[in-house]
Design a protein around this nucleic acid. Structure first.
Lengths: 151, 151
DNA sequence: TATTGTTATACTCTATAACTATA
DNA sequence: TATAGTTATAGAGTATAACAATA
């Protein structure tokens, strides 16, 4: 019985984390779709925004996906008017991906949205409780990294 | 400044939740892939396991995906030896999806794995801290549901 | 008429491999 | 020879619409 109890320890927490992950993902998808954005495209848009004009190779490395995949995502974002391709000033093989006005606006709105959601999620917490919760999440994150890299 | 501080409240927590979501998802994918399972197939396998022999329509409703999608996932799981299709005893239009020995074993192993991971994630916590953390996660989950259904 | 599952078709994300143009 | 991006091809997940068999 004690053994079983030990085995079950943390399962409700784990399931809650899975549920939260699913809900956040669904909420984001619902927000993005109307604008013609998807998770993958948004991820690239975000990366391009926070790095300034970048080559597709650099984006592929940053997102850890294939160069081919970046080509497709940039195609879609370019068609949607979120980014622009321009020649690299010194390397004629490369192209630079830059956010358009619309792309920058989209990222800015997403950041506002993120702040609003974040604030809402913890609106019940007092300062001490919030700090404690953050520390707990950090601890869990550290354990997860251990599981991934059993170094 | 106070305004900005208010706006930023909870952002680190939100970002941590996103990171945890990503890490859990990656870890699961890494575990499942060798067996020829994917997230979508596993989701269906799980649903079929916990409902007993089920029609594809019922699975489509449970997973909230199209009937067409279920056909494809069941095809893959059948090829992989995880489930079996059999005729419905009374409705000749329908087919029942049942887990094979191998499918049941896979689900059982995943449940063990889930318990091990769950226990590891919170191994730092004492009983009171764990309960507090769980309550905090419940609060956040409730807020998320509010965001989804502004009922 | 309504429902179950499938075929037909299409779009998105993802990958590897081959190819072109450049470095 | 190596690198940047594309074309070619393929597989997985997802959707809608049309269709066959059955209720």
């Amino acid at each position: 019985m004690q053994y079983l109890h030990g085995m079950e320890r943390g399962v409700p927490v784990f399931d809650r984390l899975l549920e939260i992950a699913m809900l956040i993902q669904e909420d984001m998808a619902r927000e993005l779709e109307p604008a013609g954005l998807t998770a993958a495209r948004t991820h690239l848009l975000w990366a391009a925004h926070h790095s300034g004009p970048t080559t597709q190779q650099a984006l592929a490395r940053a997102l850890q996906v294939s160069a081919r995949n970046v080509t497709g995502l940039v195609d879609a974002l370019e068609t949607g008017g979120f980014v622009r391709r321009s020649p690299h000033p010194t390397d004629r093989r490369a192209t630079l991906v830059t956010l358009t006005e619309q792309g920058t606006r989209a990222v800015t709105e997403m950041e506002d949205q993120r702040r609003r959601i974040a604030a809402h999620l913890v609106s019940d917490f007092d300062a001490a409780g919030l700090e404690r919760f953050r520390a707990d999440l950090d601890a869990v994150t550290a354990r997860l990294h251990e599981l991934m890299d059993p170094a």
